[in-house]
Design a protein around this nucleic acid. Structure first.
Lengths: 102, 102
DNA sequence: GTCGAACTACGATGAATCTCGTACTATGGA
DNA sequence: TCCATAGTACGAGATTCATCGTAGTTCGAC
């Protein structure tokens, strides 16, 4: 029972996975909120029009794509956008997406 | 029959649609080739590991997302990346995606 | 006109996925 | 210990979508 959640390394992040992860409105909203609030965000506090299990599904998709870090803290999950890694791999990508009005 | 293909206007382009369109490996390859060759590209000349009808499907997805222009020229279709519109709407996005190695 | 080349339209199929509900685990407080 | 809260696991239903084959259209060459 490795208690830690699995994340891809910086070099394992694939552009297709990142784009697919951010192409969903719910996930895009999650990432925008995490980025806006900064530092670590208790993922459960971000309002979403979906149930808990769907939220879990989206958070896993973002984590596995390498878009966010997720760590456990008590019964909560703290999420952080992997800005450093994404900026290193794809300079300008994250800013372009997050600042896009839509 | 309106002979011209329908494209979204610059202000109708949605970020989710653009990300979804570029998240597919086949479509990403198409756009990268169009961008590399520049000007107008006869879409049929770009090698792809799919059939003609699948190619048509992907080109329509890219067109409807606002990623490329498609115009008819004889029996061929000429494609051009909508760099101006995409740069205006989402500065830096296209460059970040197209220059990404992987 | 006839033929082939390039492409589209349409339907089918199988895979991915978004969503949910239920059941379960884990943490922390009374 | 008991219980509420936060989250996960699992399966199911519905939708989307990538792919293909076949049939049809359009265009240019002969």
């Amino acid at each position: 029972m490795s208690d830690e959640l699995v994340h891809p390394g910086r070099d394992e992040i694939r552009i297709e996975a990142v784009l697919h992860a951010l192409a969903d409105p719910v996930r895009l909203h999650l990432v925008r909120e995490m980025d806006r609030i900064g530092v670590g965000v208790a993922c459960g506090t971000i309002e979403l029009p979906v149930t808990k299990s769907t939220r879990t599904h989206h958070l896993r998709t973002l984590r596995e794509a390498g878009v966010i870090w997720l760590r456990k803290e008590g019964t909560s999950r703290i999420g952080t956008v992997r800005r450093d890694d994404l900026d290193a791999r794809y300079p300008g990508l994250l800013s372009a997406i997050l600042t896009a009005e839509s």
